[in-house]
């Protein structure tokens, strides 16, 4: 797939919005929370804590793809853009933002972790993250259309959404627990990741784009 100048500009804007000033303080607070939990609860795997904290912090990045800012949808719908490209770019930017935030929080937390991190732990963490990420993107795309939020911050609604997201994460962790932790079949887990990625790319992205096209006036009426 070839990226055009338009795609690159949109991607850059998405990443800038992902790391906007309003996001930094909550992420910093969550990083501190992760450090605290890892130091206090040394039986919990640090990678699990990191993933939970990152996804809670980036919840709105997944579930409000149409409203990074309150008028994002209207502004984007003025441009001659294919919604499929827009959804794809937004999702890819979310993936990269997640990876970057994971790395930053991991560096902070693992420094304080009483456990020694082995290379195998890192591999398992990456596999675990890959297992949940594509289904989460899919759920986020659905949620963005089903319950669009023009603004997202750290209010009650947003915390409830973040809680819901963590529940999804727990459910989506089951394939990893089953295939890797219980059955010790990492290759089967990799195959599962490939299937979820294929589903996201071939079904979730086009389906979301088609629904945005069909429901644009209703989505624009979001209060």
């Amino acid at each position: 797939m070839k990226f055009s100048e338009t795609d690159r500009a949109l991607f850059k804007m998405e990443l800038r919005q992902a790391f906007s000033a309003r996001r930094i303080p909550p992420l910093a607070c969550l990083a501190l929370l992760a450090v605290f939990v890892i130091v206090q609860q040394s039986e919990l795997p640090p990678t699990f804590v990191i993933v939970l904290v990152v996804l809670a912090g980036l919840e709105s990045q997944y579930t409000t793809i149409l409203f990074r800012t309150p008028n994002d949808l209207e502004a984007l719908s003025m441009f001659p853009l294919e919604w499929r490209r827009v959804v794809l770019i937004k999702n890819v930017a979310t993936l990269i933002a997640t990876a970057l935030v994971c790395m930053m929080i991991a560096m902070a937390t693992l420094y304080f972790s009483p456990k020694h991190l082995r290379l195998a732990d890192l591999g398992n963490a990456m596999l675990y993250g890959s297992t949940i990420i594509f289904p989460l993107l899919h759920i986020g795309n659905i949620e963005s259309l089903h319950s669009p939020r023009r603004t997202s911050s750290w209010g009650t609604d947003d915390l409830v959404q973040a809680g819901g997201m963590l529940l999804f994460v727990l459910v989506l962790s089951l394939p990893y627990l089953l295939l890797v932790s219980l059955l010790d079949l990492p290759l089967a887990c990799i195959a599962y990741v490939a299937l979820t990625a294929m589903h996201w790319y071939t079904r979730s992205v086009p389906m979301t784009a088609a629904r945005i096209r069909q429901q644009l006036p209703q989505l624009c009426a979001t209060p």
């Binding site: 804007m13 008028n71 003025m78 945005i212």
Partner: peptide
């Protein structure tokens, strides 16, 4: 709705701020 070709021919100034401010 979603017609890309017609959007290239149009420019809008709406009554609400649409920019990424």
């Amino acid at each position: 709705p979603g017609d890309v070709a017609s959007k290239k021919l149009l420019g809008f100034v709406l009554d609400e701020p649409l920019y990424f401010d």
